[in-house]
Amino acid sequence: MQQMQRRGFLQWLTGLLGAAVCSVVGLPGVKYLLESLGRGRRTARVVQRVARLADLTPGRPLLVAVTARKQDAWTEYAQHVVGRVWLVKSGGDGGVQAFTAVCPHLGCTIQAGADGKTFVCPCHRAAFDAQGRRLPSSATGQENHAPRDMDALACRVVQDEQTGEAWVEVTLEQFVPGLRHKVARG
C-alpha cells in the first residue's frame, strides 16, 4: 500500500518536473511568436505630391509610386515605395481622381486595361471602368470578383511655393480587401 503511494507520488513528481521544464521553453516561445504581431506595422497614412498636373493626359490613367520611410523588421529604408496610385484626369473639368492600385478583391496591383483607359486586375481579371467602377460581367464576358469599386484616395491640386507649378497631392491609405464596403486599415 505504502509502495503504491510512493509510486504514485513519484509519477506525479516526474510529471510536475517535466511540465516545469516544458514551460521554460514553451511560455517564452509562445510570447516570442506572439510578439511579432505587434512589430513592424505598415505606414498608416502618407500625404505626398506624386505628379505634376501637366504630366497628366485626360483619359490616360497614370500609375505613380508613393514613397516613405519604411521599417521592414530590422531594416530601415529612408525611401521605400509604400504604395502605388492611379491618377485619372477627367477630360471635362480637368479635375483629378486618385485610386489606390491595390485591388479590393485580394490585394493584387491593378493595371491598365488593353485600351489604356480602363483598369483590370491581373489576378482574377476584375475589370473597372475609367472612373474605377466595377464593370458588370456582361461587359467583359467574365465574372467580376471585385467586391466593390476601386478605392478612391483623397487628392488635391496644390501650387508649389517656389516654382508655382501645379502638383497632385495624394493621401495614401490602406483599406481592408474582400469587404463590400471601403474600410480603412487600422
Partner: peptide, 21 residues
Amino acid sequence: YWPYQSVRNMTVLALVVGIIA
C-alpha cells in the same frame, strides 16, 4: 524504470534547465 529512474532523470534535467534558464 518508470517512475523510479524517471524521477531521477527529470530531477537532474530540471536542475540543469534551471541553471540554463
